[in-house]
Design a protein around this nucleic acid. Structure first.
Length: 515
RNA sequence: GCUUCCUUAGCUCAGCCGGUUAGAGCAUCUGACUGUUAAUCAGAGGGUCCCUGGUUCGAGCCCAGGAGGGAGCGCCA
């Protein structure tokens, strides 16, 4: 039994008179009661309004259950109105959509809302009634009964305005850009794709292995590496030759951040069958493009008993699964990105899901490029690597679909790729996507010890550093294959963003490691 | 690393042939407005013209060097 204004009331629902929050429907229900009342309220044992569980904006917007008390917490996107009614758009990141909060100006006059800081950017908690919206543009809204400001945001200094910002400007305020519609959408998509990666592999019998981030081998030749050391910056110990003596370093040898988990992935594949890695990767190259990062995330499946054909089948099925997953789970975000950044995005994604990738050999591609009417800045010649313009021609002009190129000349590919019978080409495969270029690079691996050793000698890869890698060919060697998928390039493709720095929360690139 | 373009108000950008007090839209602030959708309308405030040096009677504008950013290329995922 509780007491309200000295009166005994029911166990938790009380009827109150006087000025009431704008809960029309609740008021209507109260007319069934015999006593006169203006509104009801659920109270806790100490007479305070009972706590309502917080709902996400996504859940409220999808709710069919109206005329109930709700609690939402989030950040104000806009506030507007007049001396009769105030509108507050609240977004909590659960969806790209904001929920409209309607505040009766009798209870919440504009001056009061301003004074408390209910403005663009503020963090707020709003209690009220979920009702059908009177206005156009949304089906439900919240009639506010209580507004609490957790943290105000000074309108004169808060960098995010109620207007569009350029992506370049937002890059300078990476700590605030997740609060924008665009980055909310990108980050939700990024999450969905990461989750889908694990889902796909788990459903298909792959095991997730953690390959090292600090590595002692500088062997793969995948590019410049970041050095990892605890030696003092000033006057590090020197060896007899006058060079830095890494024998005295933390690991007793020179170490770097990984440029690929592939070689270690092969170890796991030769035991567990089908494995994948999904982790950060570091390249210290001075790459200044919209497709490169110094720190990025790479997915590298590696499969025992797979040949190049199996590898291609997996890559295509995997990519289609990921795109399909995004199309199913992130409709609202993709719709937003299509409308604001890339009008062709949704049709392009659907096209990738619906159509087979074009598969052809490097040699066939060179023939096509040589007979192309288009003039290229760089000439096409068998034996040289294809330029971006050549890849773009094949994907965007000639085939107009994703392309898998295979069997590249051995001299332009890595030492571990399996040599073809002709001895001129290797069983490599690159998956080329429109706008992105190479999204996947992979190969069947050379499992023959002698052939692998010969390739290593030809390409000056030191055998002593990779004794363990060669052991895999000495003991129970088997055909196997794998590939690397640059996660950010996938996100780039699926979101329709133009710059890879806009699909990772905190991009790392030359001269930039802020945040 | 190479090529090229850019840097003017909080943001996005104009700024003529080198010439008086550097402008607009949005944002901000003030006021008006009975349900708005990046609300609308009226008014106000707001500038190290990226930095350094030079040419000139005079530089936002021309020249040199530096810094930062974009796009393209290379390296690759």
């Amino acid at each position: 039994m509780y007491f309200v204004r000295g009166r005994k009331v029911g166990p938790c629902c009380v009827l109150l008179r006087g000025s009431r929050p704008a809960e029309r429907t609740n008021y209507g229900r109260l007319r069934n009661f015999s006593r006169p009342a203006d509104y009801f309220c659920w109270l806790n044992p100490i007479g305070k309004p009972m706590s309502v569980r917080r709902s996400s904006v996504a859940a409220l917007l999808a709710s069919q259950e109206l005329d109930r008390e709700v609690l939402v917490k989030g950040w104000v996107r806009t506030r507007r109105g007049n001396k009769f009614v105030q509108f507050i758009a609240v977004n909590d990141g659960s969806t790209i959509h904001s929920i409209q909060v309607v505040a009766n100006a009798e209870t919440f006059p504009e001056e009061k809302l301003k004074a408390e800081g209910v403005e663009n950017g503020a963090a707020v908690a709003i209690r009220g009634t979920l009702v059908a919206s009177q206005g156009k543009g949304q089906t439900v809204e919240i009639q506010a009964t209580d507004i609490e400001v957790y943290g105000a945001a000074d309108t004169t200094t808060y960098p995010l305005q109620k207007k569009g910002h350029t992506l370049e400007f937002l890059r300078e305020i990476a700590h605030l850009r997740p609060r924008t519609n665009t980055f909310g959408a990108v980050l939700r998509l990024r999450h969905a794709l990461a989750f889908a990666v694990h889902q796909y592999f788990n459903d298909n019998g792959f095991f997730y292995v953690h390959t090292p981030i600090i590595t002692g081998s500088d062997a793969e030749g995948a590019g410049q590496m970041f050095r990892v050391t605890t030696l003092p910056e000033q006057n590090p110990p020197l060896n007899e030759a006058g060079q830095v003596d890494y024998g005295q370093d933390f690991f007793g040898k020179a170490t770097n951040l990984t440029v690929s988990g592939q070689l270690e992935g092969e170890i796991a594949a030769m035991a567990l069958g089908k494995v994948y890695t999904f982790g950060p990767t570091f390249r210290a190259e001075n790459s200044n493009t919209a497709r490169h990062l110094a720190e990025f995330w790479m997915i590298e499946p590696e499969m025992a008993f797979y040949d190049l054909q199996d590898n291609m089948d997996l890559a295509e099925d995997f990519l289609k699964y990921l795109v399909r997953y995004a199309l199913e789970k992130c409709q609202d975000d993709l719709k937003f990105l299509t409308e604001h950044y890339d009008k062709e995005l949704l049709t392009r994604l659907q096209f990738v899901v619906d159509n087979d990738f074009q598969r052809l050999t490097y040699t066939e591609a060179v023939d096509i490029l040589k007979s192309a009417k288009q003039k290229f800045e760089f000439p096409v010649d068998w034996g040289t690597d294809l330029q971006s313009e050549h890849e773009r021609y094949l994907v965007e002009k000639h085939f107009k679909k994703p392309v898998i190129l295979t069997n590249y000349p051995k001299d332009i590919k890595a030492f571990y790729m399996k040599l073809d019978e002709d001895g001129r080409t290797v069983r490599a495969m690159d998956v080329l996507f429109p706008g992105i270029g190479e999204i996947i690079g992979g190969s069947q691996r050379e499992e023959n010890l002698e052939k692998l050793q010969q390739r290593m000698q030809e390409m000056h890869v030191p055998e002593e550093d990779l004794w363990w890698y060669l052991d895999l060919r000495r003991f129970g060697s088997a055909p196997h294959a794998g590939f690397g998928l640059g996660f950010e390039r996938l996100v780039l493709f699926v979101t329709g963003m133009a710059n890879i720095r806009d699909v990772i929360p905190f991009p790392r690139f030359p001269r930039s490691a802020e945040f």
